[in-house]
Amino acid sequence: MNRLRFWFLFPARALNGLLFLIPLGIIVLYSFMTRGTYGGQGSPLTIESYQRLFDPLYLSILLRSFWIAGISTAISLLFGFPLALFIATAAKHRGAYLNLVMLPFWTSFLVRTYAWMFLLRDTGLINTVLQSFGVIGEPIPMLYNDAAVVLGLVYGYLPFMVLPISSTLEKVDPALLEAAADLGATPWVALWKVIVPLAMPGIVAGSVLVFIPCLGAYLTPDLLGGGKSIMIGNIVQNQFTSARDWPFGSALSLVLTALVMGLLWIFVKKGGQKAL
């Protein structure tokens, strides 16, 4: 049995080690190297790349990424919570309602982002319709700004908010609400004082699940922000392609990964994953 188990686990271990852990290790190594004259990297070893992170330019992009991810998470919560409550308290078709949330999520992320470009561009659908009805004369610039990036992120990750909240809410005993009503609470008071506290594990889990991919986003700020609204992911990509400063790109990658891991670590430490 043990020998069979060894061979069953071997391919996954080999591939994950060779093509995930070792590449991460190389990035760690590169982050302490010096950038060569023609790109590339070599000795001497230095922490210069990490010191550059405190350059106000990069620090501000780091803060912006947090800000954009935070706003996207808040908006996802604002709309995701009522939807989750609606699904969890539906008399029937709960599974169908949940599938309706998940279906667009599984279709291509790239295509979904492109769909918003199609809607928001100067010659896009929204501007064309508004112009043809004479509501506006000139097209409103809606693409290539922070709001478009936030919109794209909310659109992309809203399901991550809805799923954990609705599964926590489904476990809430309806008798508690009846008790609250008997004791004189209006539905809104009961919502705030009974349902929200009980849904808190799901709310926290959903917020973490939305915040993490938003923080590391690359495609959404690239396409909907169009170089005007950039996040950490875009800087990483840039350092590895056009800027050809791999040591600095590696340091940025590691900081981004460390932030994500740190958040998850706090979340797991507090027992938050039990809500999933």
Binding site: N16, I26, L215, G233, T257
Partner: peptide, 23 residues
């Protein structure tokens, strides 16, 4: 293995991409 697989799941895609490129 389980921890490493979860790590690969939550690592931002862009980081996975550049580290593979470097590798």
């Amino acid at each position: 293995l389980e921890g490493s697989l979860y790590l690969s799941l939550v690592t931002p895609e862009i980081v996975t991409g550049v580290s593979l490129l470097a590798f």
